[in-house]
């Protein structure tokens, strides 16, 4: 009785699994193709002249043809853009991750007066239409004296990145088992000194970080375009695509 049941169970399981996994695999492959094809074509186009792009967009280019890159290197201030980009994105990311995790940890782990209000405050920051703030922001930067300085961008990006970070990290830290921290406390860890926060929480929430540190960079780049309005002199990388428009 039990033997037949097992056989039946196994057989159905195998067929079912194969069919289902086959379908899922097809979906994945199709999706990967849709995701990668445009990027591959973009890379190919980088080695082509405009003529070639229009005539044969799919053809393999002559990878020795680096005319476009030379042009960017010599005719624009590319290295400057790149370094600015690294500086601004790097520093704001460090600030966002540090400050964001601090706030998220406090909100998710401690019950204190106003915790949910503070979370709401951050979420409100997420919904604000920042485009409107450009003019007051410009005046603020002028008053602090960091106009035309990368610091102004770093501060704004940090402030912009924080709401998303706090929102996501709070969710992640909430789902982490409390037992991990209890165990650490048991072993004599005090809150700050022995890195309950540092080791346990961040260690286990690496998933959270991976997810949003990458999307964080994107959010930054995205607003760089708006930054150009007020901060043209700081020469930011998003000005790049703008300058290169029509010259892909």
């Amino acid at each position: 009785m039990s033997a037949t049941a097992t056989t039946y169970y196994d057989r159905k399981g195998i067929i079912g699994t194969l069919g289902r996994d086959g379908l899922l695999q097809i979906i994945l492959v199709a999706n990967t193709f849709i995701m990668l094809a445009p990027i591959v074509i973009m890379v190919f186009s980088a080695f082509k002249t405009n003529m070639e792009i229009f005539q044969s967009p799919f053809a393999l280019p002559d990878f020795g043809n680096v005319g476009n890159f030379v042009k960017i290197w010599t005719q624009t201030n590319f290295i400057r853009y790149l370094l600015n980009s690294f500086l601004v994105t790097g520093s704001s990311m460090v600030l966002i991750l540090t400050l964001g995790t601090m706030a998220a940890y406090a909100i998710a782990r401690y019950q204190f007066f106003g915790a949910s209000f503070i979370l709401m405050f951050f979420i409100a920051g997420l919904t604000l239409p920042l485009k409107l703030a450009i003019i007051p922001l410009f005046m603020l930067m002028r008053d602090i004296g960091i106009l035309n300085n990368q610091l102004s961008l770093i501060f704004v990006y940090t402030a912009m990145g924080l709401p998303t970070t706090v929102f996501i990290m709070t969710g992640f830290i909430r789902t982490l088992p409390n037992e991990l921290e209890d165990a650490a406390r048991m072993d004599g860890a005090s809150e700050a000194r022995d890195h309950v926060v540092g080791d346990v929480a961040t260690g286990a929430s690496r998933h959270g970080y991976r997810g949003h540190s990458e999307c964080g960079t994107d959010l930054e780049r995205l607003f760089l375009s708006a930054g150009v309005y007020s901060e043209r002199q700081s020469q930011n990388p998003a000005a790049g695509p703008d300058d290169f428009h029509g010259r892909i």
């Binding site: 503070i118 951050f122 940090t158 924080l162 709401p163």
Partner: peptide
């Protein structure tokens, strides 16, 4: 406080 201060100064106040 530090994260809150950033958001307050560079988002909430201009807005």
């Amino acid at each position: 406080v530090p994260p809150l201060a950033f958001v307050a100064l560079f988002i909430i106040y201009p807005i």
